[in-house]
């Protein structure tokens, strides 16, 4: 029986109970109806308390919290040197990482991050929906990356290698993540990296790549299935 007087203990109890259900069930996004279904199972029946629902639903019902980043909001409300300076420490490491992961050397990654930040400062007035800031930011980063590659490949006469996802920095030692994404086609690889390395939510990925959010979810699902198949095949071989 769940300890109904203490919502947090109840939450811990339910999470423990959740861990008993199959991995497939757990991987589903748990919305209100799913929670209700789980709670209606005989071994989990207990008297409901409104606080319990609040505690239970808040972590599950929203995929990622909406952007309430005050630094971003401050800058977009009043773009200026001071608000942008505050935002810099927040954005620069992410942008630097974005370029460095995609095969750029340190200096060039820093240079391109600089260009993206200036572009953000110049064009911030054109962003109407402030909640789409990260999608917009990574769209600029992606365009900067493509522009740079186009320019260089035009000079180097390698026009076939323009796909941004084709280049990811190989790790010095073995990395399962790097091995996993190698089995994916370029578009799924890019989305996987945006999701798990750059840590973007679905909407921001959709905005940055320029495809609908449903397609992003579908491609991620496909990618995960392919990686899981790869793992299963490896285990089969070992056995």
């Amino acid at each position: 029986m769940a300890p109904v007087n203490d919502p947090y203990r109840t939450c811990a109890w339910l999470l423990k109970a959740l861990s008993k259900i199959s991995a497939k069930e757990q991987s589903k996004r748990l919305g209100f109806s799913n929670i209700c279904q789980i709670m209606m199972q005989p071994e989990m029946t207990f008297v409901c308390h409104p606080d319990i629902f609040y505690v239970l639903l808040s972590p599950f019902s929203v995929e990622l919290p909406p952007i309430t980043d005050s630094l971003v909001q401050n800058f977009l409300r009043e773009p200026g040197e001071s608000s942008f300076g505050d935002l810099f420490d927040h954005l620069y490491p992410r942008l630097y990482r974005y370029f460095a992961v995609r095969g750029f050397a340190r200096d060039l990654a820093a240079e391109l991050s600089h260009d993206v930040l200036l572009s953000v400062f110049r064009n911030s007035a054109s962003l109407r929906d402030h909640s789409k800031f990260y999608g917009w930011l990574f769209q600029i980063a992606r365009n900067t990356l493509l522009q740079h590659r186009r320019k260089n490949h035009r000079l180097d006469f390698f026009p076939s290698q323009l796909d941004p996802a084709a280049f990811f920095t190989p790790p010095p030692c073995e990395s399962v993540f790097y091995d996993w994404i190698q089995c994916l086609p370029e578009d799924e690889r890019e989305i996987c990296v945006l999701r798990y390395v750059d840590d973007l939510d679905y909407q921001s990925i959709a905005d940055s790549v320029g495809i609908p959010m449903g397609t992003v979810k579908w491609k991620l699902h496909q990618a995960k299935s392919k990686i899981a198949n790869l793992l299963n095949a490896e285990i089969g071989v070992r056995r």
């Binding site: 460095a100 030692c173 990395s175 996987c192 390395v197 899981a228």
Partner: peptide, 20 residues
């Protein structure tokens, strides 16, 4: 069959980043 969770992918991605 093995299911693959976001948390596992995130952890693997973190190791990849740490290596770089």
């Amino acid at each position: 069959n093995i299911g693959l969770h976001d948390s596992e992918l995130r952890a693997a991605a973190l190791c990849y980043l740490e290596q770089l």
